[in-house]
Nucleic acid binder design. Structure first.
Lengths: 214, 214
DNA sequence: CTCTTACGCTACGACCCGTAGCGTAACTAC
DNA sequence: GTAGTTACGCTACGGGTCGTAGCGTAAGAG
C-alpha cells in the first residue's frame, strides 16, 4: 500500500537517478494499446511491459497493481473533455453528450472504465483515485455549464446562503449522474451509438421533460 | 461453446440422471454469498464450489465460465422488480428508482453488475446473456409504465403507423437509459445513496426538465 | 567521485482458470 | 430386474497471471 503512483508524490526525490518520464508515457501508451487489442479480460501486466519495452518490475515501481495503472492510462483521455459556450443550455448539453459518447465508444475506455469502477466497490484507494483522476474533472464541466445557463436565465440562480450552496452541490451531482450515467448506459448496456439525433433527444428530455419527446 | 446453461436448454434430456435443481440453487446462492464476502476481484470458482458443497467440475457442467455464472446468480435478483400503479407517472418513476436503487445497493449486485458488463464489451455471448437475463425485464417495466402514462394523458400517444412503432421503441430505450443509467451512476460512481428525496428530484427532472429543480 | 535511486533481468511462490479421466450414483426405458 | 444414459465427486493437471525478491548495472544529484 505504498504510494508509488507518479502523480501523487508531492515531495520530489531530491537525489539519485530520476524516473524517466518517457518511460511513464511509454507504459501508459502501451496500456491503452493493450486494452484496445485485448480488452480488459486478457489485459496483462507482462504484455504491457513488453509493448512498452520495459521490465515488468518497472511497472510495479510506479503503480501498486493493474487497476491503478489502468485508471491512469484511461484518465488522460478525459482531459480532452471541454465545454465550449454554444450559446444555449440545449446546445451545451448536446455538445458534452457527444463528446462523452465519442470518448466511451473508444474500445480502451469502453472495456476499462466499468471494470475499474466495478473493482472500486471493494477498494477504497482505487475509488479515490478514480474520483480525483476522472470524476472531478467531469463535475467541473457540469458546474461551468450550469453557471452559464444561470447567467442566461435558463436555470434558476442559487440562493447565496449556506443551504443554497449545499443544494447547488446536490443539484450538480444529480445533473452529473443523469448525463454521464445515461451516456454510459447507452454505450455499455444498450450497446448503441451516441449520435447527434440521440444527443438532441436526450438534451430535450433534460430541458422539457419526457412529455417533450413525442 | 456448448450450451450448458440450465435455463437455455429447451428440449429436456429424456433419459439418464437428471440435474439436481437443489444443486442449481445451492450454487447460485453460494455465488451471491461469495460476491458479498469477496467482491468480484477475489471471487473464485473453487470458492463457490466449496461453499455450495459441490465439486468444481459441477459448476463447469452448468456454466461455461465465471462470467456466465455470475450473470445468472445476479439475474434472479432482478426478478423482484415490479411496477405497481401508483396513479401518476411521477409516483411510478419514484417507485421504480427506489426499487432499482435498493437492488444496486446490495453488495453482490454492486460489485458484480458492472464487472460483467465490462467483460461483455469483448464477449458477444455474455452480452446476449445479460440482455435476456437482466435488461429485457427492465425494458418491459419501462414499456408498462409508459403505456399507463399515455392512458392517463401524461405522455403523448404513439402514432399507429410503422414509423410510430419504431419511434416508440427508441423512446423506450432512451427512458430506460436515463433512469437505469442515472441510478447506476449514482450508486457506483458517485457512491451516494438512492433515497426518497433524491428519487423525487430525479423524477421531477424527468417530468419538468432541469429548470424545475430550483 | 560518491551516493542514491531507477532499471533490467531472472526466478519464484501463490493462486486461479478450465479440462481430462475415472469410478460411482441416480434415473429412464424396456 | 437390467441395460443404457447422464450427473456427480474426486484427483490431477497444464497454462497462465499476479506481484515480489534479489542482484548487477545505468544514470543522474550533490
Amino acid at each position: 500500500m505504498v504510494a508509488r503512483m507518479p502523480h501523487s508524490c508531492p515531495r520530489k526525490r531530491r537525489t539519485g537517478r530520476p524516473r524517466s518520464v518517457e518511460t511513464d508515457r511509454a507504459i501508459l501508451d502501451a496500456a491503452r494499446a493493450a486494452l484496445v487489442d485485448l480488452g480488459w479480460g486478457r489485459f496483462t501486466m507482462g504484455d504491457v511491459a513488453a509493448r512498452a519495452g520495459v521490465a515488468k518490475t518497472t511497472l510495479y515501481r510506479r503503480w501498486a497493481n493493474k487497476n491503478e495503472l489502468v485508471v491512469d492510462a484511461v484518465a488522460v483521455l478525459f482531459d480532452e473533455l471541454e465545454l465550449p459556450d454554444r450559446g444555449s443550455l440545449q446546445a451545451d448539453i448536446e455538445d458534452v453528450v457527444l463528446q462523452f459518447g465519442r470518448l466511451l465508444e473508444r474500445p480502451e475506455t469502453k472495456t476499462a472504465l466499468m471494470a475499474v469502477v466495478a473493482e472500486s466497490t471493494a477498494d477504497a484507494a482505487l475509488r479515490e483515485r478514480i474520483r480525483t483522476a476522472i470524476v472531478d474533472r467531469q463535475i467541473q464541466l457540469v458546474v461551468l455549464g450550469r453557471a452559464r445557463a444561470q447567467d442566461r436565465g435558463e436555470l434558476p440562480a442559487d440562493p447565496p446562503d449556506h443551504d443554497g450552496a449545499r443544494a447547488a452541490a446536490e443539484t450538480v451531482g444529480l445533473i452529473f449522474d443523469v448525463i454521464a450515467g445515461t451516456v454510459v448506459h447507452r454505450t455499455l448496456v444498450s450497446a448503441e451509438p451516441v449520435d447527434t439525433v440521440w444527443a438532441r433527444r436526450l438534451a430535450t428530455v433534460l430541458l422539457t421533460g419526457l412529455a417533450g419527446l413525442g
